[in-house]
C-alpha cells in the first residue's frame, strides 16, 4: 500500500515544485511556479470546461439510461426470454475494452461511416457530418460514446437494487391509492437513493479521469474542443517533456479528486 500509493503521490508532488525533473539532471526548487504556469494557461481552463461538460452530461445520462433499462429488465410485463435478450443487448457495451470502443465508434462516426449512411438514407441529413472532426459535434460525440460505454454499470447495479426492494412497499402504496408514477417517486427512488448517490460519485471520479477514450478518438482535437484535464496533462509530460508542469497539473487533478472522494467516503460512513 505504501509503495504503490503513497510513494508515487509524494514523488509527483515533489516533482511539481522542481524546475524540470526527468529531463533535467539537477532540478532546483521553484516553489509554486509550475502551478502558476498551469493556472495561467488558457488551454487549462478549456480543458476544465470540457471535462465538466463531459463528466456532467455523462453522469446524468448514465443514471437516466441505467435506471430506465434496469426498470425495463425488472418489470413483470415482459417474458423471461425477452428480458434475457434485452439483458444481453444492454450489457454488450460494457464487455468491450476502451480500445475496441474507440475503434468501433471512429469507424461508425467517420464521414463515410454507417451513422452518416443511415441518417442520409433516412432523410434526416443531406450531407455527411464529420462527427469527431467538427468543432460543433466533436465534444457531444465523444460524450455520447462515453455514455454508451458506461451506462451498463449503472444498469446492473440499479437492477440489483430494484430486485432488493420489498414487494410489500409497493402493495402498501397501491392500497394507499398511489399510481405507478407516485410509486416510482415515493418508493423506488428513496429505496435506490443510497446506490444512486454512491454510483454517481464514483462515476464523477472515473469520468473526470477518462483518458484513453478521448486520446484514441480525437486526441483532444479538433483544435482544443475535446481537450480534457487528462489529455492536457499527458501532452505536457510526453509531448513537451515538461514533467514538472505536468506533475503540477496532476496534483491539481488529485486535489479535485480528493474533494470528491471525501464526499464519497463521508456518504458511505453516514450509511454505516
Amino acid at each position: 500500500m505504501f509503495i504503490l500509493t503513497l510513494i508515487p503521490i509524494v514523488m509527483v508532488i515533489s516533482y511539481s515544485v522542481m524546475d524540470n525533473v526527468i529531463v533535467n539532471k539537477s532540478p532546483e526548487f521553484v516553489g509554486f511556479d509550475n502551478y502558476i504556469e498551469v493556472l495561467t494557461d488558457r488551454v487549462f481552463y478549456t480543458a476544465v470546461g470540457n471535462t465538466l461538460f463531459f463528466t456532467g452530461v455523462s453522469v446524468v445520462a448514465h443514471l437516466v439510461l441505467g435506471l430506465s433499462f434496469a426498470m425495463l429488465l425488472n418489470t413483470r410485463l415482459l417474458g423471461t426470454m425477452t428480458k434475457a435478450l434485452f439483458r444481453v443487448v444492454y450489457i454488450l457495451p460494457w464487455l468491450f475494452t476502451v480500445a475496441i470502443i474507440a475503434v468501433l465508434w471512429r469507424l461508425m462516426l467517420s464521414p463515410n461511416g454507417i451513422v452518416n449512411y443511415l441518417l442520409i438514407s433516412g432523410g434526416l441529413i443531406d450531407t455527411g457530418v464529420e462527427w469527431l472532426s467538427s468543432r460543433d459535434t466533436a465534444l457531444p460525440a465523444v460524450t455520447f460514446i462515453n455514455i454508451w460505454a458506461g451506462y451498463p454499470f449503472y444498469m446492473i447495479s440499479l437492477l440489483a437494487g430494484l430486485q432488493g426492494i420489498p414487494r410489500d412497499l409497493y402493495e402498501a402504496a397501491t392500497v394507499d391509492g398511489a399510481n405507478s408514477f407516485k410509486q416510482f417517486l415515493n418508493v423506488t427512488l428513496p429505496q435506490l437513493k443510497p446506490i444512486i448517490i454512491a454510483m454517481a460519485m464514483l462515476d464523477v471520479i472515473w469520468t473526470t479521469q477518462q483518458f484513453a477514450l478521448i486520446w484514441m478518438t480525437t486526441g483532444g482535437g479538433p483544435i482544443n474542443v475535446t481537450e480534457m484535464l487528462s489529455t492536457y496533462t499527458y501532452k505536457l509530460a510526453f509531448s513537451r517533456y515538461e514533467f514538472s508542469v505536468a506533475s503540477a497539473s496532476a496534483v491539481i487533478i488529485l486535489l479535485f479528486s480528493m474533494v470528491l472522494s471525501f464526499f464519497y467516503v463521508r456518504h458511505q460512513k453516514s450509511r454505516d
Binding site: 464521414p111 463515410n112 455527411g128 472532426s133 467538427s134 466533436a138 486526441g219 482535437g221
Partner: peptide, 21 residues
C-alpha cells in the same frame, strides 16, 4: 480534401486511399 481531416491519423489516411476513396 477528404472529410474528417481534423482528427484523421496516418493509418486513417492509408485506409482511405486503400479503399479507393
Amino acid at each position: 480534401v477528404a472529410p474528417g481531416a481534423l482528427t484523421m491519423k496516418e493509418q486513417d489516411k492509408v485506409e482511405e486511399f486503400t479503399n479507393g476513396r
